[in-house]
């Protein structure tokens, strides 16, 4: 079985802080990480590699520094890593991103394509299903668990608002994985040592057969018209008092609001 896992390098948004005076983001020193949902997608692929000897390729699109997450993927145990990097990919919205990634996947052999449900910097959850459409394969999103029959059928547990669904789908297909689906393995020391000897393949737009009009800013139906910060809402009253007095203040507010 051959698996392609799409991953993304994202700023660790849990580390992003606000400047309390200006209300702007403090991005300096914020580390870049492998997107958590994607990491669980990668773990799922590696479990299939452990059990069924699957061949796992990771694919990402981004600037050269995105190579770091591909090295991390090598250290976790993937077989092949591809970085799509080219100025012609820059400024892509989700549709243009999915065009590039699907273009790359079309040049590879695959039985299963795995993506994270969504990335923590954009939270759109769009690129996975869009890739599936370009590849003309079925998708199962919000994956919590996957069983493989060793032949061609996947049995998948997918999350819904009020519970879950069990669905069956044959390969080839695409799944989007929740970060709660599993606990991604750590890199091994041996893996880290070896990761630096492995080759990350660097692909430009010439390497994929996609019309340039469908890539990057040019290929993006959506454009940012303006970006702005919301500014700081004026803070209310703040009390620094002992527990007893604090309780009194809360109780009086609850009473005032007719909660109690």
């Amino acid at each position: 079985m051959k698996i392609v896992v799409c991953i993304k390098q994202v700023p660790d948004t849990t580390e992003v802080k606000l400047d309390p005076v200006t209300g702007t983001l403090i991005r300096d020193g914020v580390p870049s990480i492998m997107n958590p949902d994607d990491k669980s997608g990668l773990e799922l692929a590696l479990e299939l590699k452990d059990k069924f000897n699957a061949e796992v390729t990771v694919l990402t699109m981004g600037p050269m520094q995105a190579e770091a997450i591909l090295r991390e993927a090598f250290a976790m145990g993937v077989d092949r890593a591809i970085l799509l990097t080219d100025r012609r990919f820059a400024g892509a919205d989700t549709l243009a991103t999915s065009n590039a990634l699907a273009g790359a996947i079309k040049t590879l052999e695959y039985d299963l394509v795995i993506a994270g449900r969504q990335a923590i910097d954009g939270d759109t959850a769009q690129v996975g299903p869009q890739i599936a459409e370009h590849l003309d394969i079925p998708q199962v999103s919000y994956l919590q668990n996957l069983e493989y029959d060793g032949n061609k059928t996947f049995t998948i547990k997918k999350q819904t608002e009020d519970g879950y669904q069990i669905v069956e789908v044959d390969s080839p297909c695409l799944v989007t994985v929740l970060s709660t689906a599993n606990n991604p393995r750590y890199m091994t020391v041996k893996g880290i040592m070896e990761a630096y000897d492995k080759e990350v393949e660097i692909w430009s737009a010439d390497k994929i057969d996609v019309d340039e009009a469908k890539l990057g800013l040019k290929g993006s139906p959506t454009k940012v018209k303006k970006a702005f910060t919301k500014g700081v809402k004026s803070a209310g009253e703040v009390y620094e008092v002992d527990t007893e007095e604090a309780i009194g203040i809360i109780i009086s507010k609850l009473t005032e609001k007719f909660i109690i």
């Binding site: 702007t24 959506t222 940012v224 018209k225 702005f228």
Partner: peptide, 13 residues
Amino acid sequence: AFGGNLMATIICS
């Protein structure tokens, strides 16, 4: 966008 404090207005012209 980018966590919440930054807002982006998007168009699809």
